[in-house]
Design a protein around this nucleic acid. Sequence first.
DNA 1: CGGCCGCTTGACTATTATCAAAGATGGTGG
DNA 2: CCACCATCTTTGATAATAGTCAAGCGGCCG
Lengths: 237, 237
Amino acid sequence: MLDFATQSTASHGLAHRTLHRQDVMKALAAKAPVCSGQKILPPNTALWNEGDERTHVFIVKSGALCFSRMLPDGRRIVLGFAYPDDTIGLDSDIRHCDAHAMQTTRLIAIPISAYNRAVNEDPDFQRQATAAMSDALNEAYRHVVVISKLSAPERLASFLVALSERNQAHGLSPLSVVLPMKRLDIADFLGLTIETVSRTFTQFKAVGLIAMDQSNIVIFKNIQKLRALAAGEGTDV
Amino acid sequence: MLDFATQSTASHGLAHRTLHRQDVMKALAAKAPVCSGQKILPPNTALWNEGDERTHVFIVKSGALCFSRMLPDGRRIVLGFAYPDDTIGLDSDIRHCDAHAMQTTRLIAIPISAYNRAVNEDPDFQRQATAAMSDALNEAYRHVVVISKLSAPERLASFLVALSERNQAHGLSPLSVVLPMKRLDIADFLGLTIETVSRTFTQFKAVGLIAMDQSNIVIFKNIQKLRALAAGEGTDV
DNA sequence: CGGCCGCTTGACTATTATCAAAGATGGTGG
DNA sequence: CCACCATCTTTGATAATAGTCAAGCGGCCG
């Protein structure tokens, strides 16, 4: 059986935002008050840029972030998103993508020195961080599968289902989601264009898979079908 | 500047095979003799399957491996390859993809218990393993970029350039590569079909980017142009 | 009220997939 | 040693999916 189709739980998107296992978060939260600060980012401002040295690890408290890379000719690739409760920036000493706030975003900033101290003091902590990175890798593989083989409807379904599951894991309703990102972000995340994303939303509405009252609120009408699509079961829209 | 375009060194493909930093390898090699065995896989045999529990970490001595996943309807996705000197299986306690030998492959098999012992004894070792996973993640992001935004010629160029760079890093000529995999593996790795891969090879030959005397030996004729293509600099084939 | 930004829709194009068949290549057995 | 077969690769013709270009709609804010 294929675990990548069924094991998706709280997370979607790539590693930067999936490093949020409960245990890691708790450990970090415990350390956080000691020498950390709060940071508030207005919409469309950078948290870091590709190539920057890592100075902090962050815990998202509210808002939403977007991780992306640029090709020399301007093509943009969104690697993932981060939402409240996600811990981000664990994965490397050098940022290997840009990070920016998509809306006003509140973060706890933990200096890397404090983070390293915590890691050195507690081997369990280190192991947990490793486990979180392992999750992140698995997540990255899932995304590779999504963008290398799935059709546009399948990709969008995969995206929406992941958001639904994330809601559920956070005690919210899995039957509707609020999209904090624009169509362009979704398109760049799924390897599509805004037009294709828009048309696919329209198609989903037309066949009764979802309903939308605003362009950023999705109500699931047939989550089973969406799951089947997302899993690549070959069924048509 | 974009580091993903320039920092590629020895590795290409996804994490399973990129966990091969020198230091990690040395540490493993030092431990390996104590309680490890050699394993020889004939072509087209599985090393592990998705969902398996991890029992060993392996060092590839010769041959080549392929990491893949399957969608329910049979679509296959190749996540990466492994070559001699690569250390594989570091990233998770549960295999999250299949691994099979593409040709006769010789491996050093280190029981996971021995590996864990090594990690527990030496915090440095653990840190190095973490660093290797960080590399793997970065590698995964590069691959996401490749398959989500690059054209067929750009993808193939990216693949070939990575192989050339790997050769160079191993003291071999960067001007030619032997492909241990079939067209189908390349296609499933790049998110294309065998026909498109084949046509793109033909196109590369026609415009003088490469030469091939056999279908699995590539001689680079214009590596600069290939690099530009691979980096997504927008230049046409 | 008007302009801007983001979303949607339409017409058309292009890239790649699909279907089909014809070379290569390599191994096996007569 | 050669013929045959299976497998892999290449090439061709056609189709489909998604991209591009362009225009219209709608909400929001100055």
